[in-house]
């Protein structure tokens, strides 16, 4: 029976990890390629989770159905955040403190989002109690939560679509062009700021999906936003700064480390173990575990 428990834990870890992986993906997309550093996607995710909760409790719409509305809304929110708040920093070089400035602005915005959530929904833990929240699929004596399967599926789907878009479409090629040489991209006639804004929009839309799945597996409270942001960044660092595949593996790993710590040791230490692991990684492989060549 102990054996089944372990497998159960691993499955749970992968399920939770897919939320971190999604957030990591959102960060890696704008950071790894366009050098835009965001510290607000965790808060965006939680905001989406709250909106999903609000829609579910007020009109009873399923969170997955509300995604159809929320994804475009958050795409535009992200688009205009980039246009209004991030644009002034896009011409800064890294040594001029570009990342610091971007971190501070996005973090400030994230703080505002968190505060608004506190004001509207208070700090009480909320839960979206959809009927399938605790539904499971049974394979012999293993029970797999349906929500975890769905989130893993969504993660893979988003990754595939993203890779396909990056490889094949005009938008993707422009995006890759902007990622290596901003000036040449402009001289080629690519609207650099627009590409950045669209990317930020897409990454915000990914955060919505992450937030929805988080709300379906956890109870939500506003302060979780910053925590999710950091978990997402841990995935990016472990994954080797911007390789999308590496970030996904790293995100799943983060989830695994947390669930295994809870299983074998004390749940309160799961984050401590994760960050000790991160510090060790910084000593032995500062470039990340799955560094892109």
């Amino acid at each position: 029976m102990e054996y089944t428990g372990l497998i159960q834990t691993i499955l749970g870890g992968v399920g939770v990890g897919s939320v971190y992986a999604l957030l990591g993906l959102a960060f890696a997309l704008v950071f790894g390629k366009l050098k835009i550093c965001s510290y607000m996607h965790g808060d965006l995710a939680i905001l989406a989770a709250y909106l999903g909760y609000f829609i579910f409790t007020s009109i009873g719409l399923d969170p997955f159905l509300s995604l159809i509305v929320l994804i475009p809304i958050f795409f535009f929110i992200g688009y205009y955040i980039q246009v209004i708040f991030m644009k002034p920093f896009m011409s800064m070089e890294i040594w001029q403190g570009r990342y610091q400035a971007q971190i501070m602005v996005t973090w400030g915005l994230g703080m505002c989002i968190m505060a608004i959530e506190f004001i509207i929904w208070s700090g009480t833990y909320r839960m979206i109690s959809v009927p399938y929240r605790n539904a499971t699929l049974n394979f012999s004596n293993l029970t797999v939560p349906v929500v975890h399967l769905l989130s893993l599926g969504a993660l893979l789907l988003i990754y595939l679509v993203l890779s396909l878009v990056l490889q094949k479409t005009d938008l993707g090629i422009s995006f890759r062009a902007c990622s290596v040489d901003r000036i040449t991209a402009m001289l080629t006639g690519i609207n650099y700021q627009k590409i950045c804004a669209i990317s930020f929009g897409i990454s915000s839309a990914i955060a919505v999906v992450a937030g929805t799945f988080y709300a379906l597996t956890h109870q939500i409270t506003p302060a979780v936003g910053l925590e999710l942001t950091f978990k997402g960044w841990v995935a990016v660092i472990i994954g080797g700064m911007g390789s999308l595949g590496g970030v996904i593996l790293a995100g799943l790993l983060v989830g695994l480390v947390e669930s295994l710590t809870s299983f074998f040791w004390i749940p309160a230490l799961k984050e401590a173990v994760l960050f000790v692991g991160l510090l060790l990684l910084l000593i032995f492989r500062p470039g990340g575990l799955f560094k892109a060549k």
Binding site: W107, G108, L109, M111, C112, M114, F118, I119
Partner: peptide, 13 residues
């Protein structure tokens, strides 16, 4: 509780 972050965040931005 937690609402004061609105002002702090806005100041930062």
């Amino acid at each position: 509780n937690g609402g004061h972050y609105l002002m702090v965040g806005a100041l930062l931005v």
